[in-house]
Amino acid sequence: MKLVIDGVEVYYNSIPALRGASFEAQGGEVVAVIGPNGAGKTTLLRAIASIVKPLRGAIYIDGRLVNSVPPKERGKLIALVEPSISRSIPSSVLEFLLTARYPYSKLYSFTPSKRDLEVIDIIAKKLNITHLLNRRLDELSSGEFQRVLIARALIQEPRVLLLDEPTAFLDIKYRLEVMELVRYVTKEQRIISITAIHDVYLASLYADKVVLLSNGVIVAAGKPEDVFREELIENVYGVKVQILNIGDRRIVIPIQLLNNGQPT
């Protein structure tokens, strides 16, 4: 399968948040989107998920224009994990996870199918949240909550899995665990995963392809060795970095601010 992002432009109140964004991804590829705060990472993911409509440009999955896919059908193609969901009305983890199967059933078929519940069981086991199914969403730790959010997306069985800062609130162990899992699922199911991530270091550990955003523009996209170059990262982030070769990976280590450590 193939995802093509072609010249996508998104504006908020006529202020551009994404300009002429283009790149491609193949099935089985782990894509990392990096860039400073406000660079447009979230906007890019929301555009792919059709949550925001691009003013110009198009997004294709296997040659199909995503915007012309019926909304429910789109639910089977794309899932976006946002950093949080509303929890103001109390509900349980299982109640939340059951909604992820809605794209697969009719509006008025009210009870979940056997397969719906089986998929939930399999994914819950994989993410180690089986013991949480009966718990309330607002009574989970951030690590547990994050895993539930990711489980939901996997239960939806999408072809394109989008994750927005999935590791932001996690400790080191869970960060690695989440990224391992994303990588595993992407390879096993030959889907495309695109993860927006602050942490350049984590991105360099797991990505097959890296998209570097700055001020709404993709300044580089391609293999990690093409994007993780010292001068490129330093230009975009204003931070001095060192690139270490560990195994077959190029790992980015931030060293200090560029202007000799003087805060600006």
């Binding site: 909304p71 789109r74 969901i85 509303s86 059951l98 909604t99 809605y102 939806q156």
Partner: peptide
């Protein structure tokens, strides 16, 4: 009754409901 599923999805946020195909 016809709103049951849309309402269930809606509980978790606007963009969440949108992802599942509900406006």
């Amino acid at each position: 009754l016809l709103l049951i599923k849309p309402l269930n999805a809606y509980l978790y946020g606007d963009s969440y409901a949108k992802q599942l195909g509900f406006e």
